[in-house]
Structures are given as structure tokens and as C-alpha cells.
Simulated scan of single mutants.
Amino acid sequence: MTKHLVFQSDFGTSDGAVSAMYGVAKTVDNDLDLYDVTHDIPQYNIWEASYRLYQTICYWPEGSVFVSVVDPGVGSDRLSIVVRTKDNRFIVTPDNGTITHIEDSVGIEEARVIDEKVNRLARSYESYTFHGRDVYAYTGARLAANVISFEEIGPKIDVDQLVKLSTPEVKVDGGIIEGTIDILDIRFGNLWTNIHKDYFQEASIDYGDTLEITILDDTRQVYKNVMSYGKSFADTQVGEPLLYINSLENIGVALNQGSFAKAYHIKTGEKWKIIVRKAPKIVYS
């Protein structure tokens, strides 16, 4: 098995929390290669933790171990788990919905509950608020370093019993496509939707078409305009909006060399809806 151990959390890097997890991992095996997805997940945002794994995990070598700690229920009776995906990667995480997007996109082959009598950092049993260090980093490092096998994590749990978040489905009605704004391409302010490119192909929407876009915050309209569907940001003028296919092959909304999210105060989540329809052609008499 590879010795890649990959961390993500909502801890940030302004204190010693992430460094402590690294230290635990290196104490297990100093030859472990440690990496990060991100430690800038918004606090307590399990949805974004789930999505960032989906964005990342399939590009890592088989056998890679991911430790994901966004854990507002730390110290409660929520379970601590390790899952093995159907493409043979591992995720160490609280059972709070973090595996939602991976289960939907890749599939979970098997899941086990961490047996803390065996897989917990020594002398940490009176600490109930830093399972990222005491349980997840420790267990993930032991798994990545082949100190323990997957079967030695703890008892098996039915995959169907794992906690999953709600994932809204795309709706299609008479050429109108309705989806949700799942997440932001944070650095650039692009909107990433749950509308896969296949929906555009089925609706015979081609590059260069002009589309009418409506964005709703629940039932309140916050944006409505027409924009083009392009292959890249260069297919429109600087400052102009466009639709494109993002790196996960879903439809994105961008402002060329600007932040669409900031310009129009767009956020993400189940209640943020996007409606796409072909713009009516203007006929000049």
C-alpha cells in the first residue's frame, strides 16, 4: 500500500492543530508522505468537506488514505469510521455525512467503525474534543503505514447505515433545467452547479448558444440575465458572464476575470437554485 496520507479540516492553520495531527502521523511512521486537501473548510460545513473529497480523491493513487475532520459533533455519540471506496481509497472521518458525495459518485465498498480501545493515541482518553489528532490522524497513519490492516480498524458496519446528506436532484421540464449551486470555485468566485454536462447535450445546447439564467435564493430571485455557453473564459469579453463545463464536468457560471459570487452576492447550498433555458431568438422585421 502507498504511504500517502492526505488531510482536510476546518481547523485553519493559524494555530497548532494541523501541526499536531502531522506530528502524530510522523510518530507512527516518519516515512509517511503527508499532504493536504485544504484546512480552510468553513467551520462546521460538512457539505463542503464532502464536496472537496469528491473534487480530489479519485486523482490520488489507489491505497491513499484521507483524514477528513469537520466534526461539529466531536465528543458526542456519533461514530468514527473508515470507509474503503470502490476504487480502493480510504477515508477516515466522523460518520456525519462527509462521505455523501463519494458514495454517490464512486461508491463505498466497505465501512468499519474505529475501535478506540486499539486505535487511539495513548494518554488521550480524557480528551473528548480533538479526535482529529487522537483518533483520526492516529488511525489514518497506522492504516497508511501498514501498521494495521483495514480489517483491524474495528467492526464492520453496513454502508446503508452511514449518515448521508441530502443531495438535490436536477429537474428537467420542457427544456428548462433546474439545479442547485453546490459550491464555489473559491479563489475565482465561480459558481459550481450540480448540472452535469449531459443535461446540456440532451437539451441540444451547444457551445455558442445564448442561455437565460435565473438564480434564486429559495424563492427570491437574485439574478436574471442572458449569457453565452463557452468552452473557456476567453470565449467572452472581460467582465462578461458565461457558462462553461468545470473540471468535474458540471456546469459552472463565471465572470471573466471577476468573481460572479461577489458581484451578485451568490452563496451555495440546497436553497440556492439555478434555472437554465435557451434564450428566445430575437427576430428583426
Rank of each mutant, 00 (worst) to 15 (best):
K3S: 07
V6R: 02
S9V: 00
S9C: 04
G16Y: 09
A17Y: 12
V18F: 04
V18K: 04
S19Q: 09
S19T: 12
A20G: 07
M21R: 03
M21W: 13
Y22E: 06
Y22D: 12
V24D: 04
A25S: 09
T27G: 08
V28K: 06
N30Q: 02
N30S: 15
D33L: 14
Y35M: 15
D36E: 10
V37I: 09
T38G: 10
W47P: 04
A49N: 01
S50Q: 13
R52N: 02
C58F: 14
Y59D: 05
Y59G: 01
G63V: 08
V67L: 08
S68R: 00
P72G: 10
P72L: 10
V74A: 00
G75M: 00
S76W: 07
S76L: 07
D77H: 02
L79E: 14
L79H: 12
S80W: 11
S80C: 09
K86V: 06
D87N: 11
I91F: 06
V92D: 10
T98C: 12
T100F: 01
V106P: 05
G107W: 06
E109F: 13
R112F: 00
R112P: 00
I114L: 02
D115E: 14
D115H: 06
E116I: 15
K117E: 13
V118T: 12
L121M: 08
R123N: 12
S127Q: 09
T129S: 04
F130R: 00
H131F: 14
G132V: 01
R133C: 05
A141V: 00
L143G: 14
L143Q: 06
A145S: 14
V147Q: 02
I148V: 12
S149T: 08
F150L: 11
E151I: 01
I153L: 06
G154H: 02
I157W: 05
D158A: 09
V159L: 08
Q161N: 15
K164T: 12
L165Q: 03
K171H: 15
G175Q: 01
I176P: 01
I176Y: 01
D182E: 07
I183Y: 10
F188A: 12
T193R: 03
F200C: 06
F200P: 03
A203L: 06
A203N: 03
D206C: 13
D209G: 12
L211C: 11
T219L: 10
Y223S: 01
V226C: 09
G230R: 14
K231Y: 13
A234C: 01
D235V: 02
V238A: 10
G239S: 11
L243S: 08
L248F: 08
A254T: 05
N256Q: 14
N256H: 13
G258C: 11
I266T: 05
I266K: 04
E270F: 06
E270K: 15
W272V: 11
W272R: 04
Y284E: 07
